[in-house]
């Protein structure tokens, strides 16, 4: 089968595990298959290793065991053709560059042509019109997050990896972002992985939620989110939505209990 280069890739993790140099186990061997064009959320308690898993998928961290295949190839190959984008926990904007400068940097790092009009369009899309020339220090936390997401989207990646992208944002802005931004990548059919510890956010944004145990990360539950798209704030009041949130919460609680039992048994 010849893969279509424009089609979003699938991600396959086989026996993927990470143990830190000091012997600390971050991720237990994990098998995952992420379908092309789907948005998957990784949910788990703080410090459980879900971000490490994401970084291994992104090719930023070498697994201790197992491997990742993106569209059948190792992440390094996807990286080489700048086929993915990562939005990090902190916005990671270079302070000496303007919003536009930061977005353009991503394009030139990805060896893509810089089109001023399309960058402007992107800036408008994330609601930063009028701030194109502002430096990060002049922006609020939420605006910086939006700029970082605009940068991640600028290269039109086939695989988008979001590591708690709305972490440092107040609740209202967070809801707004969670409502507006997914439309952008959904429209492009991008394969997306979202790491979050907000259960409602996970349910709102994704097609599938994977719940991890406390560290070392282990898959506790794999919950399909069969809500219609596009979703809006109203959808969150639907009983189906509440039930799904309840399912995820239950899985999280189970994970914590399992951990406590394991500790008690020692």
């Amino acid at each position: 089968m010849v893969p279509d280069p424009a089609a979003p890739p699938g991600v396959v993790c086989t026996g993927l595990a990470k143990t830190w140099a000091g012997g600390l186990v971050a991720v237990r061997p994990t098998d995952l298959v992420l379908k092309p064009g789907q948005t998957t959320a990784f949910v788990g308690p703080s410090g459980c290793g879900k971000s490490t898993l994401l970084r291994m998928i992104a090719g930023l961290e070498q697994p201790s065991a197992g491997h990742v295949l993106i569209d059948g190839k190792p992440p390094a190959e996807t990286l080489r053709k700048a086929g993915l984008s990562v939005a990090f926990q902190d916005p990671s904007l270079l302070p000496w560059r303007s919003v536009r400068g930061n977005i353009e940097l991503a394009l030139s790092l990805a060896r893509r042509p810089v089109n001023r009009a399309s960058v402007d369009q992107l800036i408008a899309l994330v609601g930063l019109q009028g701030f194109a020339e502002a430096r990060p220090a002049e922006l609020s936390g939420g605006m910086r997050q939006r700029a970082a997401i605009a940068r991640a989207l600028a290269t039109e990646p086939q695989l988008l990896l979001l590591d708690e992208p709305f972490g440092a944002v107040d609740e209202l802005t967070r809801q707004q972002l969670a409502q507006d931004l997914p439309r952008i990548w959904e429209a492009r059919g991008t394969t997306t992985v979202l790491v979050t510890h907000s259960v409602t956010e996970a349910v709102m944004l994704s097609d599938r939620v994977i719940v991890f145990s406390p560290r070392p990360a282990e898959v506790i539950a794999d919950i399909a989110i069969d809500l219609a798209r596009p979703r809006s704030a109203q959808d969150a009041r639907q009983p189906r939505f509440a039930a799904l949130v309840e399912d995820v919460f239950a899985a999280l609680t189970r994970g914590a209990a399992l951990r406590d039992a394991a500790l008690a048994a020692q």
């Binding site: 992104a58 090719g59 930023l60 996807t78 990286l79 080489r80 984008s85 990090f88 926990q89 991503a106």
Partner: peptide, 26 residues
Amino acid sequence: APSSWFDLVRSYGRGRLAALVHVRMR
């Protein structure tokens, strides 16, 4: 520089030279 700036450069498949030019030097 925070490590995430270097991760950013790597996430676009670029190496140490690009990190030097775009991040470290500045």
